[in-house]
């Protein structure tokens, strides 16, 4: 039974297209700044205190890899895309319950587990659109400013970013089944993903609070390490994937027990 997956996937088409355009423009603006920034990279690195460089993951800003890993991906991908997937996840169940669409759906021979899995699976549309769009803009944009990425490393930034974005979506889905108010679920998801991103940066500065950083999703995804050092942290990605599955199980467990 894939009717819900098909229907939901179609529902994401337009928003994914728009969002991909927005993200592409954002990335293009960043890239356009790079040639000017490259010349000033040393000055910038000198101007920021060390903790700021560490907080933002800035390293070798004069290279396109360091710039993309330190500026473009942390903001455009880890923060904005993460928040989007949290937001989208938060809409999966709460919206349908609120509009009573869920009543009709569940009057059909489909289990609640299947409903939630199909609705989450439909996030493949924005996931694919954003990744392909962003990858194309980064690869093409770099060429336009006379630079180039190692294609494998660039592909890995996106591939290993998928589990991270899924965790963000999972956070949203858990909030979505926990409340009847879509607005609250969405705001909660946006706020939580942002807060976790901030916590990761701040906690990493202080060795005593390193354990807090380990509880944040972005801790397991490091674009700078991938682009600059070609360190592909598959284990970290597996941890993220595991966390996503745990969140999905939690959400499903809550959803099958609750009143609609």
């Amino acid at each position: 039974m894939t009717a819900i997956l098909l229907n939901e996937s179609k529902g994401y088409q337009r928003s994914s297209l728009v969002l991909t355009g927005v993200f592409a423009m954002l990335a293009a603006v960043f890239l356009a700044v790079f040639p000017a920034m490259k010349d000033e990279a040393d000055a910038i690195e000198a101007a920021y205190p060390d903790y700021m460089l560490e907080l933002m993951g800035l390293e070798e800003l004069s290279t396109i890899e360091g710039f993309a890993g330190g500026y473009v991906y942390p903001f455009v991908w880890i923060l904005f895309a993460g928040m989007y997937f949290g937001y989208a996840g938060a809409g999966t169940v709460a919206d349908d319950v609120r509009t009573r669409k869920m009543d009709l759906t569940l009057s059909y021979p489909v289990s609640r587990e299947s409903v939630i899995v199909q609705k989450v699976a439909a996030l493949w549309v924005p996931m694919a659109a954003l990744n392909v769009g962003m990858l194309a803009v980064m690869a093409g944009g770099a060429r336009l400013v006379g630079e180039s990425f190692d294609p494998v490393a660039l592909a890995m930034v996106h591939l290993l970013g998928v589990p991270y974005l899924l965790v963000c979506a999972g956070i949203g889905v858990v909030l979505s089944v926990g409340t009847d108010r879509p607005g609250r679920a969405r705001t909660g998801a946006l706020g939580l993903v942002f807060l976790l991103w901030l916590l990761d940066g701040l906690a990493a500065l202080e060795p005593d609070y390193e354990w807090i950083a380990e509880l944040t999703p972005s801790h397991y995804y490091d674009p700078t390490a991938i682009l600059l050092h070609e360190e592909y942290a598959f284990l970290d990605a597996a941890v993220s994937l595991g966390a996503f599955l745990v969140l999905l199980v939690v959400a499903t467990t809550v959803f099958v027990r609750r009143d609609i």
């Binding site: 229907n7 529902g11 349908d96 509009t99 009573r100 669409k101 869920m102 009543d103 009709l104 009057s107 059909y108 021979p109 489909v110």
Partner: peptide
């Protein structure tokens, strides 16, 4: 539920 039809009071369509 494959043998049931349901017309709810509030119709939540897309």
């Amino acid at each position: 539920k494959s043998e049931i039809g349901y017309l709810p009071d509030t119709l939540g369509f897309d």
